[in-house]
């Protein structure tokens, strides 16, 4: 159930990464899931010694649904001066992961630092990493249900989203399906008016 709390101006793209213009932040490469392990091993061997970051993005209307995003950095693996480090090559690897069966190979044996990052993606997106030695929730409690960073996970959590909550009188909120309540603009205006009249009567008497 999509969150109704903030009616958003929806974007047009189901996959914004396909519309990206080159902004010069990193070299970008899209890899098929089947070729991910081989590519990563090859990249590691070719000098990308640091797995800078590992995250995921959810595109519910796209197939495959998830993108796992790796940022790699070619860092010298020995003590080196500023000149030797220079501007290391930065590479972004995007890999689509299916929404029905979200399974992705782990890269923890190549870069041990992937450990917590993969646990976090598992926790918040529900993507399972095969080959990870210790895949359990990291941010949410162990008994939590659902994966909060998925787009279909309500902002305030399932329990609070189901309960009727006071809807402000914004028209957009009503359109977006918020449950009706007594707090419409008219009701508020009537309350204000009544309070003013009461105050006027009291000051007269």
């Amino acid at each position: 159930m999509p969150s109704t709390q903030t009616p958003s101006i929806t974007g047009l793209a189901t996959d914004p990464t396909s519309l990206r213009v080159d902004v010069g932040d990193a070299e970008v490469r899209r890899v098929e899931l089947a070729a991910l392990r081989a590519t990563m091993e090859e990249l590691h061997a070719s000098g990308y010694s640091m797995l800078l970051d590992l995250g995921a993005v959810d595109y519910p209307e796209r197939t495959p649904r998830f993108d796992v995003v790796y940022h790699l950095l070619a860092m010298p693996v020995k003590a080196s001066t500023l000149a030797e480090v220079g501007t290391p090559k930065r590479l972004r690897v995007l890999c689509g992961v299916d929404g029905e069966k979200p399974v992705c190979p782990s890269v923890m044996d190549i870069w041990p630092s992937a450990d917590w990052a993969e646990r976090e993606v598992f926790d918040l997106f529900g993507i399972t990493f095969t080959g990870h030695e210790d895949l359990r929730r990291i941010q949410m409690p162990y008994d939590w249900e659902g994966h909060p960073l998925r787009k279909d996970y309500p902002l305030r959590g399932p329990a609070r989203e189901r309960a009727p909550r006071p809807a402000f009188a914004l028209k957009s909120n009503v359109v977006a399906g918020a449950p009706p309540s007594g707090r419409t603009l008219e009701a508020l205006q009537a309350q204000v008016k009544a309070a003013r009249e009461r105050a006027a009567r009291e000051s007269e008497s």
């Binding site: 958003s8 974007g11 047009l12 519309l19 990206r20 213009v21 800078l52 995250g55 972004r92």
Partner: peptide, 30 residues
């Protein structure tokens, strides 16, 4: 405009980076 970008700064603790995705809307997509 839609697209994705990564930027990083040297925070007191190390490389702080943001990978942001926009779908062309007025809120960050991710």
């Amino acid at each position: 405009p839609p697209g994705d970008a990564y930027a990083s700064v040297e925070s007191p603790r190390g490389e702080l980076g943001y990978y942001i995705v926009s779908d062309g809307g007025n809120r960050p997509y991710r």
